[in-house]
Write a protein that binds this DNA or RNA. Structure first.
Length: 268
DNA sequence: ATGACGGGTAACACCCGA
């Protein structure tokens, strides 16, 4: 069985690529981020045609998450416990479409689009940290309630947990860029301390192994990327892993997303 | 070639991404 996560950077713009990828990847469950559409614009028929059930959560052109499965799709949730809302001062906070869950073949699958943070001094940064802390509390509660629970936290985490997860750590640190700061990394590692494991890393060792390459400045051909997309698994799920890969072929050519799919293989 | 940013909305720019 294969499960995967992929930030597609607009599902409508990437529809042909997503369909072709489903065709060749033999993927059973795909967590999608940045659909960038409302339900009424969602390409439902693409997934039907390919034999997948799909659930989507999107409210406007920002964010948007979905889960497609050909092994069942039940108990869809569109938020986690105490998921923070974001609102600029003077405006009502809004729950953003950044998380959804569904149970697929006994696995509690989450499709997650962690807030970017924008800059270390921006009000989106404390939002990002709080968002992750709430998610961790929720994820931890699932495993506490049932130590045998198979939970997959899949998505675009917008954090590079280790120095080798960016092509030039000095550039990031010296320019006070996001994704590598101690508070962001601590928020990520808290999941590992809670028993969740990065299921792909041991099968895709770095350095120089990434899941995202900026569209600008020839980042992809120059191999200047970031590892920021992860599948974190509960102990019971981690015990089933037999392999993992990053499909960097998918980043090539015209019309690619700036993220590549991350695939984890499990025992049946 | 893996190649010089792209998507969406609304408007003839601007927001957003990391």
């Amino acid at each position: 069985m294969k499960i995967a996560t992929w930030n597609v950077n607009s599902l409508r713009a990437r529809a042909d690529r997503v369909e072709a990828w489903l065709q060749r990847s033999d993927c059973d469950v795909l967590a999608i981020q940045e659909t960038k559409c409302k339900d009424e614009n969602f390409p439902w028929e693409l997934f039907e045609r390919m034999g997948y059930e799909v659930a989507h959560f999107g409210v406007n052109q920002w964010n948007g998450v979905a889960i497609a499965s050909r092994v069942g799709l039940e108990d869809v949730e569109r938020t986690f416990l105490d998921q923070p809302a974001f609102g600029k001062e003077g405006k009502d906070p809004v729950q953003e479409a950044r998380a959804m869950a569904a149970t697929c073949a006994g696995i509690r699958v989450w499709s997650l689009y962690v807030p970017n943070g924008r800059s270390l001094d921006d009000e989106h940064m404390p939002y990002k940290i709080k968002w992750l802390e709430s998610l961790k509390t929720h994820a931890q509660s699932l495993v506490t309630a049932d130590p045998a629970a198979q939970v997959a936290l899949m998505g675009d985490w917008n954090i590079a947990p280790f120095d080798e997860d960016v092509w030039d750590i000095d550039l990031f640190v010296n320019n006070r860029l996001t994704h590598v700061s101690p508070p962001e990394r601590a928020a990520f590692h808290a999941f590992e301390e809670a028993g969740f494991k990065d299921l792909a890393r041991e099968y895709t060792p770095g350095p120089g192994v990434y899941t995202y390459w900026d569209y600008t400045q020839l980042r992809f051909p120059k191999k200047e990327g970031m590892r920021i997309d992860f599948v974190l698994g509960s102990p019971a799920l981690a015990a089933r892993v037999t392999g993992a890969s990053i499909d960097r072929e998918e980043r090539k050519g015209k019309g690619a997303s700036d993220h590549a799919p991350v695939i984890v293989e499990l025992t049946d």
